[in-house]
Design a protein around this nucleic acid. Structure first.
Lengths: 330, 330
DNA sequence: TTGTATGCGTTATCAG
DNA sequence: CTGATAACGCATACAA
């Protein structure tokens, strides 16, 4: 069912019909200076023939495809879905198309996609990846999200550190005196790990005691349960405030707390990170630090499309916001 | 920052370096029959030069891009995110790339994308759209999801009718004696509207009374509230079972019911449609009829890539399943 | 089996 | 301002 024989009229046909030169047709189509009489003749011929522009020819000639590749784990996780959406919108505003590659956290796939993107002459690559060994192609504009590679590879990210500080201060402000931070993460140096750093720094600054549990990818969720029950005595949890690495994990932790008989937010207040909403646009799921996804998307797109090297900082952090949604007492 | 001058080595360079003809290089790369000695020389030259394949040339020559366009409202709604993901995976298995277009339900954008997809010589279009006036291009393989255009345009869909029947029977089986169906929808003839048809038919068959409220896009949510309070007397809802067009709406309705003091599932059991999970992979949000998204994705992809016209039925309905998740008493 | 040569549709250079 | 013409990188028909 794949159509391989769509031979519509070409610019040459239009030129012949209009009685002008091929180059003139090209100029009309690209909006360059052309005498009005010529322009009209060409437009008429285009309509008469039902001419349709063919990008393959242009791509071959110019080495530009007006396409950016987005490499992302999936669009099932709502955060990634949101990000993909806003990046697509931002690209489209600048007249670029998006080629989407889902890695499913598979390292081989990531390198494969990089290869493929280059074969397809994309004009740039935006990647959110967790592969530590990924070799970034030098020959093609590259922007990463949330992940540091080297100072030569621009990275766009939320202000994760600032978000961590914000969470600690907010919990303090809401009366908490004994905090904990919980997360799962890879061992990679990436931006999200700064959530913890900011949180810890703020706790120290405010002289609030805090504990940290950070699981790596291989440890099971039950480690969190052990952690919580270790700090659970006489029907009471040792913490009155939790800052959790992602909304998704926060949601799971809250389920566990409920099973333990710990009430949220009465006994313990919980703040997550990301800003996930129910069905993408309904209410927030937990009180959380919201990532500025549309701004992240715009920033990555501006960066990858800019010709100006000063638009290529090694790291750009965008401000987060706090939102209350039932798991805190505000 | 957009790279327009990446002039790497071409097949001609490889040929010269290997001391063979250009055509031979092409044949090696495309895996055609080539003498072993030649193949080795070519492979060596490719490595030595760091040659990278350029798809623009091939696209121009063959009119094939190995790219399929997916037109979809967004990836914020979790159902669409899931669908996009599985379609991408299915395409990738067949060595196809995906160009993604988000319509945001905007009709002008839909027609624009159709135009753009053709300019970019995509090999086919898979579309989930709500535009009644959309003109399907004849010259390019086209498959729709959930939406009937004409018998000439193949449509892939869940068995919405069967799902409606299934919901009614399940509610009956769970002891309900007074049902209602609620949804919002466009006036379009589309597959999801058959959810209601199946539900109503099953109710009649079982001689169960049922009410229906179907809002169009312009009516506010408050119409649902009025409907519910109209059927609410002496602290009791007239219905003991609700079938709701989507999980998303079901979620909202349940919030409203809680505000009214109606308990779910004790006072009224609720079944949604779609099969949305928390964060895409955690628990189901409501008891629901689950759409077979991976199968839908595979079917659309098979259809659009098949050369065999018998793989192009006008409608293909895939079986749904029921899952219980706390809003029913099973 | 391998080499040669042509053309896909476009842009861009250069003359007029 | 417009016309003619040469690439761009590749696949393929045809010749050897």
């Amino acid at each position: 069912m794949v159509g391989r024989e769509r031979n519509g009229p070409t610019m040459a046909d239009v030129a012949k019909k209009a009685g002008v030169a091929l180059g003139t047709v090209s100029r009309v189509i690209n909006g360059e200076q052309v005498g009005e009489a010529y322009r009209e003749k060409v437009m008429e011929a285009i309509k008469a023939l039902g001419y349709r522009y063919n990008n393959s020819g242009r791509a071959l000639r110019t080495n530009r495809t007006n396409t950016i590749a987005l490499i992302i784990p999936n669009t099932i996780n709502p955060y990634f879905g949101l990000l993909a959406h806003h990046i697509n919108i931002a690209l489209e505003k600048r007249n670029y198309k998006m080629m989407l590659c889902f890695t499913e956290y598979d390292r081989d796939r990531e390198t494969e996609f990089l290869q493929m993107a280059q074969e397809n002459m994309v004009d740039g690559i935006i990647a959110l990846t967790y592969n530590p060994d990924l070799v970034i192609p030098e020959s093609i504009p590259f922007v990463t999200i949330d992940r540091f590679f080297s100072v030569k590879v621009p990275c766009v990210s939320s202000d994760n550190y600032g978000g961590g500080v914000m969470a600690a201060r907010k919990l303090r402000e809401l009366g908490c005196t004994n905090l904990a931070f919980m997360r799962t993460a890879s061992i990679l140096i990436n931006e999200p790990s700064k959530r913890m750093d900011g949180f810890a720094a703020a706790c120290r600054e405010m002289h609030i005691p805090y504990e940290v549990i950070a699981l790596d990818e291989k440890q099971p969720y039950s480690e969190f349960e052990s952690f919580l029950s270790k700090h659970f005595k006489d029907g009471k949890l040792a913490f009155d405030g939790l800052f959790i690495g992602t909304d998704s994990l926060a949601w799971e932790i809250i389920k566990t707390l409920k099973q333990m008989g710990v009430r949220v937010p009465e006994d313990v207040q919980v703040i997550g990170f990301d800003g996930i909403r129910m069905f993408g646009d309904q209410e927030y799921i937990v009180s959380t630090i919201v990532q500025p996804v549309p701004a992240l998307a715009r920033a990555s797109v501006n960066m990858i499309l800019s010709d100006d090297p000063t638009d290529r900082p090694s790291l750009m952090c965008l401000p987060v916001t706090y939102v209350s949604a039932g798991t805190t007492r505000d």
